[in-house]
Design a protein around this nucleic acid. Sequence first.
DNA 1: CTATAGCTTTGACAGGGATCAAGTGACGCA
DNA 2: TGCGTCACTTGATCCCTGTCAAAGCTATAG
Lengths: 249, 249
Amino acid sequence: MSMREQMRSLGDRVTKAATAAMAEGARSAIPNEIMSAGVIIALRPRQRLAFSREEDLVYLVTAGVLEVDTAPRPNARQIVDLYYRGDLVRSRYATNLPGMNLIAASRAEVLRISGRKLDALMATHPEIASWVDCNLARQVPRRQLHLATVGSLSGEERVASFLVELALRIGEAGYENSRTFDMPLSRTDMAHYLALNADTLSRIMSRLRQAGVLGTASRGRAYTPSLPALTALTPLADTIRSVHGTGTA
Amino acid sequence: MSMREQMRSLGDRVTKAATAAMAEGARSAIPNEIMSAGVIIALRPRQRLAFSREEDLVYLVTAGVLEVDTAPRPNARQIVDLYYRGDLVRSRYATNLPGMNLIAASRAEVLRISGRKLDALMATHPEIASWVDCNLARQVPRRQLHLATVGSLSGEERVASFLVELALRIGEAGYENSRTFDMPLSRTDMAHYLALNADTLSRIMSRLRQAGVLGTASRGRAYTPSLPALTALTPLADTIRSVHGTGTA
DNA sequence: CTATAGCTTTGACAGGGATCAAGTGACGCA
DNA sequence: TGCGTCACTTGATCCCTGTCAAAGCTATAG
């Protein structure tokens, strides 16, 4: 599959995902009031979104993956957060970490709402308020899991953990235990997310491929012949499953 | 000062801190309604607090430091969060990370409220609702800073960052640029917080002491002759200041 | 006061990951 | 078709940090 075809099919997935989310989201249905109160924005890879404490904007990810990255020092970056489909991002909560950006990891789509408008919706609709609260609360465990991953696992374990996370969250089940999934992050971004060097990450990926737990699909796409084999490589498997797993996983 | 005297004076600080917080908190005044709705609990070092998603409890730290730690694997721990005076901790947001505990890092004091009661207060008093929201929102940047510290800084930089954090948050200014502050975490806990080995941490602390940026105070207490010298050791100084610094810093 | 366990410090050593460098392949542009 | 750019891969090397071990120190119990 050429890159162009792949982009197109990704585009298809994007619009399909948006409509599916509007009808009934995979995880918890996105309220129609929110969908109709905002504007859909299509994002190209690496496109930045306005993200400061001053203007109070809220983004709802409808397709693709967003990332928040920061530059703790010149020539170094750290991705502190990933946002998947269904996640809410509010710029008011942005930190004053140096060089902080909210950008699309790959082709993505968001719904933009003003914070003021969302607040108004929450005030008049209690069910929306609780939906928003629940949405934001669900992000806390993910951040803690991320920290525990970066802080206490070896390089290989970190990579395996992230692959399991992707397989569970955006993967599609194939025959037996195999899973296919997009790789929404570039190698560099993935390295920054896992607090690894890009070179080291590449080596680890090669090792996993040689070991047979990771197969090469097309570019920007990965698959694992056996999810349990991949899962066995991370000590945090149970936690990842409970944080990122769907009902089917 | 003997250990016994020190403990006693620490106890004095605890009760004084609680009353000070009740009167007017150092950062943002704790609403009287919350103070009178809960129960004060004195905590011994290493004392665990009930912390599960099932029973919805809320703790307000009135003195000392609480820590949330987890065991990503057997014989390894990672402290994912620190709570200082004035911070709210709600057990409902507890993750299902393996072996997760909320414990007092050292002698501490909390106000315990049931989540139900706090919700009722928030419903009837809008100013309390916004105080709580603001309190929780302030914790987001701290977690991101923590992740950036662990993920992208060297061992020495991490330690320096944490020392600056302590100096700014709980330190007392001395002559010139010197600062004295409690060390609320044991070496082991500090190592787990910074994702370092306890041995390595000890080595780094010794190095800092030899370099003269860290002086030897009594046990459980530290001081730096020059806060700027310490600050120069971390590339995240500005962020730490904006997240942990008081108006006076 | 003593015994014991836990915490901290320090040394020797090995290993994992960072760094530097070169090479390969894919894509966009002329 | 050729070229420049960028992302990715792979190798060689170095150093920071983890591991293991031993000793000193502190606190708590008896």
